[in-house]
Design a protein around this nucleic acid. Sequence first.
DNA 1: CTTGTTGCCTGTCTGC
DNA 2: TGCAGACAGGCAACAA
Length: 251
Amino acid sequence: MPELPEVETVARELRVLILGKTIQDIEVVWYKSFDNQSSIPISGQVIKKVGRKGKYLSLQLTRSALVIHLRMTGQLLYSTHFDYDNTHIRAKIRFNDTTELLFKDTRKFGRIYHVNDAGDILYKIGMDAIDPTLDVDLFKSLVKKSSVNIKSFLLAQNKIAGVGNIYADESLHRAGIHPASLSNKIPDVKLRNLHTHLLDILHTAIENMGSTISDYRDSYGNVGNNQRFFRVYQRTGEACLNCSMPISKVR
DNA sequence: CTTGTTGCCTGTCTGC
DNA sequence: TGCAGACAGGCAACAA
């Protein structure tokens, strides 16, 4: 499931692939996958900027914006030909040079929102996890304000955006913090550690083009490489790389 | 305000 | 081999 590093990988690729292209039209195959909240026509608009905040991708157009969330199985595949497999394709963004950006989403949880301004969707989301202004002190103060367990805190997108199950589990393990630990009871030293490891893990995952569990693909249809380096995620029953005890699943 | 619960979806896996 | 049911999981909507 795409989290920050996977969405960042797609964003970087899309900057190369579709920036400056003019949209011919959008073909919506599954109506729920496309949520049109703007009356501004999409046809004829140019992709001015590709952004990302948390797990959301934003395409700034000439006069409006497309905000995209891939949820679990969403993919944005760039296509230059017409003989692709249409299975699970929920929408097609066609450009006037005959290339297309295909929104493939097996489980139909993902969404493309068309809005006047990307902020209409993104305002409710917290600070991006790799935003440089989210320094140790700010990170600590956010965690200390929360009474939920630390794993739930990391997953809460209105607090810090972009972290999902994979990178929450990996960073907590690396920092030596049990996921059920209460956020406001974790000592400063451990929080400092968590901040360092979270950033390191996210940046490393971006360098590795993200992690592919099952469905994640980049815009070229390629899998990521980062799943090879998991130390706890989906390693239930296997030996812990720190203490060699079998890893058990808690929820 | 916070926290918890439910529904959205379909492919894959488990047990009979 | 077939089939029912559990499971996976991010987030919106809703309830408390």
